[in-house]
């Protein structure tokens, strides 16, 4: 039986020091990827406000370090699956911003030809398995992807993301049980942003150290500071190594925070403005990397400005594409129902 490793401290290290063994290129990569998610989501919020995006739209702003850090620990061919707050995961695994944005606007050029929307996108090419609208349904499915990898003995690992809300669903524990029973190579990533829709962890949950619940099944795990991309990456590497060694699943409870509401229609009455503001000012994942780049003399303000512009261009291009791409042909109503 695997033993749970101790949780590292959740306190971020001083921001003023660039860490050893982190190259300039690496930091710039994380900065760029997190910034792409941030700007993309801001744009999506804007398009939603303009009525170009409808229905549910769950933004990832504030949580960028989670997917960017874990993607840095993944190898080509590894799989990922998540809930409906999925735009960041898609961008981080290399899916095209244009295709994601056009899906949000329900257009032909979207990843699902406009038939899935914000919550339901997939990319076989990038090994992204959704985009699932039912809270926690992706957890056994993710374990099943890992089941297939183990069956095919291909050495791949699946990242199965879910929130603190989903972590109270029964099927999560059914999945833990079978994943450990069958030694499935799956990293269960609990993105604990502290609010299940509008209900805080304190109001919904006994035993609030979610990762420790794996101990009941003999699953190793740890807590990670989800605002620190380097900490996330390091934890992701430990998790992936554990899975690839054949030791079975691993749990990462990533402490994060979403700046925006649960969805676009969230009145945000359940937390104070000050709480959100404090998090943005003191813990922002992008600012942390930005500061490392600058203080470590890895990049100048001008360098970063150039990156900002580059990202804005990508996002604007995606937005333009998502507006120009036509709505799906009416015949699409009747396609893709059965293969």
């Amino acid at each position: 039986m695997a033993t749970a490793t101790a949780a590292p401290t959740a306190t971020p290290e001083p921001e003023s020091e660039a860490r050893p063994n982190v190259s300039r290129d690496e930091l710039l990569k994380y900065y760029r990827e997190m910034l792409l998610i941030r700007r993309f989501e801001e744009k999506a919020g804007q398009l939603y406000g303009m009525g170009l995006i409808g229905g549910f739209c769950h933004l990832y702003i504030g949580q960028e370090a989670v997917v960017v850090g874990l993607e840095a620990a993944a190898e080509e061919g590894d799989k990922r699956i998540t809930s409906y707050r999925d735009h960041g995961h898609m961008l981080a695994c290399g899916m095209d911003a244009k295709g994601v944005m056009a899906e949000l606007t329900g257009r032909e050029g979207g990843y699902s030809k406009g038939k899935g929307g914000s919550m339901h996108m997939f990319s076989k090419e990038r090994h992204f398995y959704g985009g699932h609208g039912i809270v926690a349904a992706q957890v056994p499915i993710g374990a099943g992807l890992a089941f297939a990898d183990k069956y095919l003995n291909n050495g791949r690992v699946t990242f199965t993301y879910f929130g603190d809300g989903a972590a109270n669903q029964g099927q999560v524990y059914e999945s833990y049980n079978m994943a450990q029973l069958w030694s499935l190579p799956v990293v269960f990533v609990i993105e604990n942003n502290q609010y299940a829709m509008g209900t805080s962890v304190k109001r919904s949950t006994m035993s609030r150290t979610y990762w420790e619940r794996g101990a009941a099944y003999g699953i190793a795990g740890e807590e990670v500071d989800g605002m620190d991309v380097l900490a996330v990456k390091a934890a992701g590497e430990r998790a992936v190594a554990h899975c690839r060694s054949g030791a079975g699943p691993y749990i990462l409870e990533v402490k994060t925070y979403r700046y925006r509401g649960h969805s676009m229609s969230d009145p945000a009455k359940y937390r104070t403005r000050e709480e959100v503001q404090k998090m943005k000012e003191e813990r922002d994942p992008i600012e942390q990397v930005r500061s490392m780049l600058l203080t470590g003399s890895h990049a100048s303000e001008d360098d970063l400005k150039a990156i900002d512009k580059e990202i804005r261009d990508i996002v604007n291009e995606a937005a333009e594409f998502s507006k120009e791409s036509p709505e799906p042909d009416l015949t699409e109503l009747w396609t893709d129902i059965v293969a």
Binding site: I141, F147, A148, L152, Q171, E174, S175
Partner: peptide, 21 residues
Amino acid sequence: DTPITEHGFAGIAVGAAFGGL
């Protein structure tokens, strides 16, 4: 052989189907 957890193993099987089985 699965444990008696229909919700869980049906989901795992769906995932396995997505994964090529």
